[in-house]
Design a protein around this nucleic acid. Structure first.
Lengths: 350, 350
DNA sequence: TTGAAAGCGCTAACAA
DNA sequence: TTGTTAGCGCTTTCAA
């Protein structure tokens, strides 16, 4: 079996506590062990290939060095949403960098609530990253009550103390819409996201604000409930295409890139060209936005940075450090590609 | 603080071991506790909101109920490859179902080796799922030496005892190629995957076997090294298009869907139509294959099932059960869409 | 500068 | 059917 700290101490001819101080000691100022003793302990550890048992350590220190990542959606979400993977990548990078580990929790169908609560209770994680928690999340309330470190990623904070990382979604909605207005569009539709997600409302508000600033009153018929999935964008676009041509939009601002792709497909099926017959703007600007045909102009969500920031905030809490800004709002920008006609399509003669 | 098992025992007026048997007892045949005592213990636990501390349990049982999932690639892989997420979803579903938890390990840049070894050593996981380990993986060798449960997902087994779940990649390569032959293609190219991945060689062999079976000698110029990324397919296709038209292929079988999309893009840039001017077959058949323009005909990898199977095999090992088949090979099939012309494109008149 | 000893919360012999 | 006891491997007082 693996060598324990006792084996090391015995071989080094010292006490266990000395070995502990040398090998895993947080070295809190006090140099507890003399250089010669230290050398012997280190040599013994080396010789035995000693590795501390993190379980035993956690039992006494009450710290595990493991962070929990909770995705609120069904496996369908994990399975096919680039948003998700980008968040995971960002979190992971930071976690590895800070020498933590990552435990994954998710809802699979109805088991979501169970997973959720268990993650909360689980002493095997030092803190939780909650991706898109439901509005007024009871999970967050409970974390606060029990003083468990957490950070929400994309969440409308319902109190000042809440730790939540967001993007400037209002500006995102505004940028997308302004871009379309600038290109001369007058009837601009919005495929609205899932109302249960914090980004949906501010994006819509940004859209409306841009319209109003341009003196264009938003039309109720042009705001159609969709969602963040491909299918929903597809259906929503089809509904939009049923409008009489005098009311039909000439541009749409979609809830996200997947939704935009659904719209593209619906347009394609009708034989309509993008951007000539209809301009389309997506949201998120994940790698997927470069893969559509035409590539999507899209509001860039700094998902990677947001995930890193969230992870850093969580680690700060875990380690008892101050978190200066509890509710950072990261800037978004507009990535212009070909789906709006602002940029000419690439020529064919290579 | 949270109630411990001692608190429960005290409140119930029993011994700790009785409480342990009732609350977390594996109940190994012997009913150790009388019904009345049991009731008191359960009531006490209920009243105190007792939750066992899994860390303390693990320390003594040497089982954690946590499985480790290791992805061998850089964050770029996690970030943008649907393969990855589908595997994750499959594993996750099974893990949740079996009431285990999942710890994530991955290589970020150079830290891969560290992550790797630590995961191996880490007593916080009962076993490891290794996704696409390198050929003759030292990790696997070490797992075997140290009798640590593991399962490889997509790995060419180098010994009979190795636990590895694969798809029938040879048949996959054959199916793709036969399909193209059946459609009348004579010059069929293959964009070959990363040689460091176990699937690459058998796919290529299947491709060659199909050609030979049809009396068509494979042409070296038509087998071009690419990889599993978008960019690689793009570059490979461009190279192929530089061939004199008499040697230029009329169809390509790409390493995977991402690679195929790269090829599609190269073709589009040259003004070539798919499938009219060039037929394209992808591989993996993840959701992404439905998103390309045109949607890809693709060899279906049963990634979800493979991941579930791998997880089940791992859990069986962890729980000391027999694994009847150590090297299952799951069947593949061909999903026909529009990128080969076998199926007419959908009409535009809805 | 060092070591002895008491636990962290739990399980699992073993004894009663 | 029950309780006592000895740890799991480690950290951390406290005393020397």
């Amino acid at each position: 079996m693996a060598a324990t700290i006792r084996d090391v101490a015995k071989l080094a001819g010292t006490s266990v506590s000395a070995a502990s101080a040398v090998l895993n000691g947080s070295g809190r100022g006090v140099i507890r062990v003399g250089p010669e003793t230290r050398r012997r302990i280190e040599a013994a550890a080396e010789q035995l290939g000693y590795m501390p048992n993190p379980i035993a350590q956690s039992l006494v220190t009450r710290r595990t060095g493991v962070l929990g990542l909770i995705f609120p959606y069904s496996s369908a979400f994990i399975d096919r949403n680039p948003f998700c993977t980008q968040v995971m990548a960002g979190v992971f990078e930071e976690v590895v960098h800070a020498k933590y580990n990552l435990m994954l929790y998710t809802a699979i169908g109805d088991e979501w609530n169970a997973a959720d609560e268990n993650a909360l209770i689980d002493p095997r994680v030092d803190g939780l990253i909650l991706v898109i928690p439901a509005p007024h999340s009871p999970v967050i309330a409970r974390c606060m009550r029990e003083r468990r470190p957490y950070v929400a990623l994309v969440y409308e904070p319902d109190a000042e103390e809440v730790y939540a990382v967001n993007a400037d979604e209002f500006t995102g909605g505004r940028l997308a819409t302004e871009h379309l207005i600038r290109l001369g569009h007058r009837r601009i539709a919005h495929l609205r996201g899932d109302p249960g997600v914090a980004s949906t409302a501010p994006r819509e508000r940004g859209y409306i604000a841009a319209l109003e600033a341009a003196g264009m009153p938003p039309a109720a018929a042009l705001i159609v409930p969709a969602g963040f999935d491909w299918k929903e964008g597809y259906e929503a676009m089809k509904r939009l295409l049923e409008l009489p041509s005098s009311q039909r939009p000439t541009a749409v601002f979609a809830a996200n890139d997947l939704c935009a792709e659904g719209a593209l497909r619906a347009l394609r099926e009708r034989g309509l060209r993008v951007p000539e017959d209809m301009a389309v703007v997506g949201y998120d600007d994940t790698w997927f936005a470069t893969m559509t045909q035409p590539p999507l102009t899209s509001v860039h969500m700094p998902l990677y940075e947001m995930s890193q920031r969230a992870t850093q905030m969580l680690i700060a809490q875990v380690e008892g450090n101050d978190v200066a800004v509890r509710q950072p709002v990261l800037p978004v920008s507009l990535t212009v590609r070909e789906s709006c006609g602002a940029q000419s399509a690439r020529g064919g003669n290579g």
